[in-house]
Amino acid sequence: MQDYANAFVLLLNYVVVPATTYGCQLALGALGVSLIFSVLRFSNFAHGELMSFGTMITLLVTWWLQAHGLTIQPLATALLALPAGVLVTVLLSLATDRFVYRYYRIKRSDPIVLLIVSIGVMLVMSGLVRFIIGTDDRTLDDGVRFVISAKQFRDLTGLQEGLAIRATQIITIALAAVSVGLLFWFLRHTKTGKAMRAFADNEDLAGLSGISAQRVVTITWVVAATLATLAGVLYGLDKSFRPFVYQQLVLPIFAAAIVGGFGNPVGAIVGGFIVAFSEVALTYSFKRFFSYVLPADWLPDGLYQLISTDYKYAVSFVILVVVLIVRPSGFLNTRSS
């Protein structure tokens, strides 16, 4: 019995908790991508860079706050800097829309043209981020590290395996839950949120009802940039901020959005968790787990790790390809197009 408890805690510690945290971060990113897709009707590949930019601004403000001794211990200072990061990122995305995307929207360009434009925006933004802050790995987290450490847990339960829960993991899950809750409330119960859904549903009829396209587009960018900054900062707090890694994050985020069915907010969240759990579980070595649940002489050689962590992005690709072959419209899609 003790062995099974140990095995369970082991999985919690190395798979469930990290994957849940990562899933929250992906879900926030995928929600932004999904929102842009349903309202503006294109795949925004610059979303990863928007996360990167928001995190960078938050980091710069964090440094400034730290230099002036303004901290909110035991919480990370970055949380105090987050609103500033959100604000600047919103302004950047509105400027991008005004000077880049709006031109193609008025021309009623194909979604594929807008997708290519977004790749251009991605390159410019990634250059901007590297130009301002460089390519190094930076730490955002300066708060208390653990809510409960592995040693405390072991002392508490008497098990061999420890369960460590970091403060950033709790913050990620809590902030993600609150912001998703707010987003859904906004979309379902406010007039503006409903107008956004109406616009996404039937653009022409929204126009005939007097809903202003420009207003809906502006609000969409505000929400998407806020979600992107939040996702970026939470990822940075949990791991670290490195522009190169953020550029790659766009892959699992798109995989999440597509798995859940593009344009469906619930799907984006579910997709985020599917991708996160697959990535973590497939790159985890189950050797210790089996040492608890199998008799000693059954224990296999090797690490029992399905793929090396170096290939974790391949997991997103495989999920993406499988979904596109089996169910191209995603698992939770209600729209026919």
């Binding site: 007039k191 409903k194 107008a195 859904r197 109406a198 549903d201 039937n202 022409d204 009829l205 929204a206 005939l208 009802s209 007097g210 809903i211 209600t334 729209r335």
Partner: peptide, 21 residues
């Protein structure tokens, strides 16, 4: 309009609300 004259993923009430936007 002749076709595409409702918001399909919104409820009847929400459709009416949008009419009165």
């Amino acid at each position: 309009p002749q076709v595409l004259n409702v918001f399909p993923s919104m409820t009847v009430l929400e459709n009416l609300e949008m009419g009165g936007y």
